[in-house]
Amino acid sequence: MVNIISEVSKEKVFDLLNHEKRVDNRSFSEYREISIKTNYINKAEGSALVSIGGTTVLAGVKAQVGSPFPNSPDSGIIIINAELLAIASRNFEYGPPNKFAIEISRVVDRTIRESPLIDLDKLCIVEGSKVWKLHVDIDILDFDGNIMDATCLAAVSALLTTKIPTAKFVNDELSIDEDHLSSLPILNKSVLCTVVKVNDQLIVDPVHIEETLMESSLSIGFREDGTLCALQKCGLDVLTAKEVMQCMSMAFNHSRELFSLLENIKP
C-alpha cells in the first residue's frame, strides 16, 4: 500500500490538530455516523453492512458442517477473514490478503474469540466428527479510515443475526433441517475501538488522510462489562505508558456507544 500525501495536505491536518480541530470538524473523541444494516444478504446465514462515515464494510456468515480440529474435538469452528477489495481504495491491489488484511482478520478474530462472543462448545453436533464451521468473511467495500473498528462491528452484527439450520444425526446419517433455524449461542458481546496518534495527539475514528499520517495506533477490544479482551498496537512509532492509558479511557467511552448500537440488533 503506497499512500502519497502532499506536504500541503499534511501540514493542513497537523495545523488543524494543533488547534484542536480535524479535517471534518469533529472533536478528537467524536465518531462519524455509524449505520448498521443487518440481514443484507439473503443467501448468507447472517450478514451486516456497516458504514462509519465514508468507510463501508460488508460481513457475511456462512455455516457448514465440518470436522473439528483434533485439539478441540467437541467445539465448533469460527474462521474470520477480511479482504481489502481493490474497489475500496486506489491503494488496494488484487491478490491474496496482504499483511494489513491479515492483521485486521486476526485482531477481529481475537476480539470475538476471547470475549467469547459465541459458545463454540454448543456448535458441536457429534463429538470428534461433526461440528458447525462458521466462516465470517468481511469485504471492505469503501475505504475512508478506521476499517478495524468497522470490520469488528460488522462481524459481530452479522454473527448476532446469524441463524443456522438444525443438524441431527438420525440412523447414522446427518440430517439438516433447513426449516427450523436457530440463533447462535451468544455469550458476551464485544467491540473493538481504535485510537490513533497523529502529530502526538490522540484521536478516534481517523479518516483516510489522518490514518495515513498516523504515528501509531492502539486497538482495544472491550467486553460489555468493560474488561479488555484484545489489544493491538500498530504503526511505526511508539506509545508511552501514559498515552496507552489515555487511549484506554477514550476507547472505553466510545465502546459504550458501540454497545448501545449493538443493543438494537435483534436476532
Binding site: 481475537r110 474469540r113 476471547e114 492502539l218 467486553r223 468493560g226 474488561t227 479488555l228 479482551c229 484484545a230 489489544l231 493491538q232 498496537k233 511508539v238 506509545l239 508511552t240 505508558a241 496507552v244 484506554m248 472505553f252
Partner: peptide, 12 residues
C-alpha cells in the same frame, strides 16, 4: 512502548 498485544481477559 513499541509493541503491545493482548488477548484474554483483563480488567483495566
Amino acid at each position: 512502548i513499541t509493541f503491545l498485544q493482548m488477548d484474554g481477559n483483563l480488567s483495566v
